[in-house]
Amino acid sequence: MTRKRFSVKDTHLQESIGAMLQEQNQVGEGRIETLPLQTIHTAEENPRYVGRITPAEIRDHRDGKIDLNQEVGDRVSFFESVQDLANSIARRGLLQPIIVREDTDGFKVIAGERRLLAHILLNKERIRAVVRPSAPEMEERAIRLIENLQRENLSFAELIRGIEELDSIFQMENARPMDSTELAAELHKHDSTCRRYLQVMRGPKDVRQAIDHGLITGLRPALALVDVHGEDERALILSRLKGEAITEDGIKNSPASISPIVQPETRRGRRRTKVNLGMVKNTATVKHLIALLLGEDQMDERFSSLDWDDLDQVQATWDTIIAEHDRSTPR
């Protein structure tokens, strides 16, 4: 039997999606390159492995020049962990490129020191790496971006994308996301506006997609959609509004926003079987309601002895009246 073998390799999709899948976990930007190992040096200030194992020592280990019996415990386990990683790389390949930054004499490792050492152990010549631009270059990019963002004629999608890029540069420098005050300082806009931009920028993915596709072109409708809980409900709103310009009112008035059936929050648990008539502090309200239910003429007759200031008495009376009324009213 001839085996059925199907291949999409030669279609218009030139790039290997597999490679992109492996790279897409990288935060921030950079270009992917295959770098010669000798151009990469490990970062002296790397807090994790300071003083442990250097590339030179791994080379000695590879060449059998290090006697592990002479080593202390955590150095031995580090050698072993590099060996394990090397085995895995030999078997499955390098799943995630290391991250380096360009500097004056080559590239400095930001993340992936162990993967680099494993490559040395495997006697490989090159390693795949995400090359981040040097620090001054990042600053220049941030400045260019901010100048762009201050232009008036940006589309909403461009604005949100720009803010996202600015945030990712900020995160690389500061290891935390940007807050609204910091964004406000860069954009010269009001703090509360910036808070809303960030809310939309970090909001649900489907809202971001709708913005990127140009379905939502302003802050107010974007916020209204962010406020709709549940991906299903948002999807339904977007599909029902297709072809129309999406506005804040359009979202709020969409059947999906108001139809109880697509708001599972209100339908969780048991079905509602009772209506709570609420709570009042003023007993005159109770007196008034009873009078409306029974008619004024009944009041003196039935409640002449009731002390309308005694909350317990009023409560008991109300309970009786409302129960009577509920029983006697046809459904």
Binding site: K4, V8, T11, L13, E15, I17, L21, Q24, Q209
Partner: peptide, 25 residues
């Protein structure tokens, strides 16, 4: 594959199966 979240990769992932299933072979 399910982890893909970057917009451009996501679109390619989403289209890939269709390309495959509609191969003449």
């Amino acid at each position: 594959v399910e982890l893909v979240n970057k917009q451009d990769v996501y679109l390619k992932v989403v289209r890939r199966l269709r390309d495959f299933l509609f191969l003449p072979d």
